[in-house]
Design a protein around this nucleic acid. Structure first.
Lengths: 219, 219
DNA sequence: TGAATAGTGTCTTTAAGACACTATTCA
DNA sequence: TGAATAGTGTCTTAAAGACACTATTCA
């Protein structure tokens, strides 16, 4: 019977992004077991066929174990596989990427955060995984509401503008950005809520939908 | 040790597209073994850890077994998983989609071809897989050279125009299409090669690159 | 009132689509 | 010459980007 073939190891790994101090960063984990014990790596683990309904459930379990709650945005990225990527044997890693607002993580002293432009050398094929995740993030940022999931529930137009510039990695005109975003209906004003500070108060907005929304054209 | 967890079954499945008689179609296979013996399904099979370097190699092996040669275009689509999708147990299917020109398949009497708008009811979660593959195909068609991989090495501008309309599922203006495609440099004229017929001969073109090329904007 | 941030109006450039036109072949 | 397919020119619409302008707050 076919299913009696020797089966590969099946795991999930997570690229968990946040923005702290205007820098796109990844949450890493220090490995407690071999192989690569003691090194920083992407959070991950084997699929538990007894408790996980599917690999997405396994990914959510890993994320909850790491940060204590579900990520507001979670999406399958790519599946990495092969005989060479893990010294324990032929393996399949179904990789997810997730976005979490820094505001939700601030209390969590235990997370190891690392800006993506200053990552240490990562074990397994995690370097490749990160590259692919950033490519996806950058790609989707140009035509969807994706970067908004890096912000907390309430944010100003300038917060949003900044986070799009961070993820896309380019300067965007303030007025054009505002027009484009407003006509896409991805966010809505929170009536009579303003962020006050040293200067003119700024209107607060929230996402109109909890789901990812694609633009009709790019920003 | 972690890796002694019971492991899921790992397989690959392939959505193999071609265009015959101007209709986007899938190559299906009649299952020779249980479960679902006798039904039409997507070609696929278990990963063979002894012979496959990774899941993409497994996908290529399945494709060669089905059509006798490699598909000109092959890309990972998505990984489907879970306890419920296969009666044999908790499984992971790394799904690939491939594009093959009909001209290469014509000789191959054995393939079962089915237009995507007239598919039979498919076993496992293959219905979902097909839906996702078509979504990807349609999505990429609007901003890349993807549909060109459904054509043989030499084609006319009208062939290309038709195949884009098929995959996108909408009418495209002839002149605008021509301008757009030519300025993207994804194809090049084959010098002094024309397709002759009953009427004015048409310039023949070929892809400039064997790789997928994204447009700067959409068609 | 001036510094700092918030928010708007308008012009230019460029892409996409509509559509009518010309070109070449063969029956 | 007319039917059929191949290929082009040009106008309209709309989006993106540049940039200068006005608005509101506090020190």
């Amino acid at each position: 019977m076919e299913s009696s073939y020797p089966q590969p190891l099946v795991m999930v790994d997570i690229a968990l992004f946040t923005i702290r101090d205007k820098r796109l960063s990844l949450i890493l984990t220090r490995r407690k077991e071999p192989p690569f014990e003691g090194l920083l790596a992407l959070p991950g683990g084997f699929v538990h066929v007894q408790e996980d309904a599917d690999t997405e459930a396994a990914a959510r379990r890993v994320i909850r174990g790491k940060i204590g709650f579900d990520a507001p945005y979670l999406e399958q990225l790519f599946t990495f596989s092969g005989v060479a990527r893990d010294p324990r044997g032929w393996s399949v890693s179904v990789v997810y990427y997730a976005l979490v607002p820094w505001a939700l993580l601030e209390r969590n002293a235990s997370v190891e955060l690392c800006p993506v432009e200053a990552l240490p050398s990562l074990p397994f094929d995690h370097q490749q995984i990160v590259a692919k995740a950033m490519e996806r993030l950058r790609g989707k940022a140009t035509y969807s509401s994706l970067p908004a999931f890096l912000l907390p529930g309430e944010f100003t137009m300038n917060d949003l503008h900044g986070i799009y510039q961070q993820t896309i990695g380019a300067r965007l005109d303030k007025a054009s950005f505002r027009h484009k975003i407003l006509e896409q209906d991805i966010i809505e004003e929170i009536p009579r809520r303003f962020r006050t500070g040293a200067h003119r108060p700024a209107q607060l907005y929230r996402l109109s939908s909890k789901a990812l929304t694609a633009f009709e054209r790019k920003i």
